[in-house]
Amino acid sequence: MRPQIFSLMIGMLGVGLIAACTPEEMPQVSDGRALFMENCAICHGADAKGNGPMARAMRNPPLDLTLIAARNDGSFPRVQVLSKIDGYTKADLQGPDMPEFGALLEGDLVPLDTGDGVMTPTPRKLVALLEYIESIQQTR
């Protein structure tokens, strides 16, 4: 019986966190663009095509972030992109790879559906950056 009570309490906490967020509080694509320019453009370029000032100095140049969905059969892999940004997934690059962005994990949480229909409390800045990267997807 105790595991059921614990599960119920965790579920209620998640619902409370999600209910506390109103649509006005959700991050905007413009918030994500500002974070991208501040954290990512040095390597990925202002246009996110992998041509930033540091790209020439890297053994393995950064990927074109505008083609993530195209490389995944037209589907934007939200979970994988989040994992790459927050450093949970490490790249198989020789030499320095993508840095972890701990500051993006700080601050308040907003609900995010990563594609499984479950609203998961996720750091606002991380969601903003994800939304921006998803918004710039192109077809080949």
Rank of each mutant, 00 (worst) to 15 (best):
Q4G: 12
F6T: 14
S7D: 12
L8P: 00
L8S: 13
G11Q: 13
L13C: 13
G14C: 13
V15C: 12
L17M: 14
A19T: 11
A19C: 09
C21W: 01
P23R: 08
E24N: 10
E24L: 12
E24T: 12
E25M: 15
M26C: 00
M26H: 03
Q28A: 15
S30Y: 00
D31L: 05
D31E: 15
G32A: 05
A34M: 11
L35P: 07
M37F: 08
M37R: 10
C40T: 07
A41K: 09
A41W: 10
N51H: 12
G52F: 06
G52T: 10
N60C: 02
P62I: 11
D64Y: 04
T66G: 03
A70Q: 13
A70F: 13
D73W: 01
R78C: 00
Q80S: 15
I85Q: 04
D86F: 02
D86Q: 14
K90P: 01
K90Y: 03
K90G: 02
G95D: 02
G95A: 05
D97F: 00
M98R: 06
E100V: 13
F101D: 00
A103R: 13
A103I: 09
E106D: 14
G107P: 08
G107I: 04
L109E: 10
L112K: 03
T114R: 15
G115L: 08
G117P: 03
M119V: 01
T120L: 11
P121V: 08
P121Y: 07
P121H: 06
P123D: 05
K125T: 01
L126R: 03
V127R: 09
L129I: 06
L130D: 01
I133H: 05
E134Q: 15
S135V: 02
Q138Y: 00
T139R: 11
T139K: 11
R140V: 04
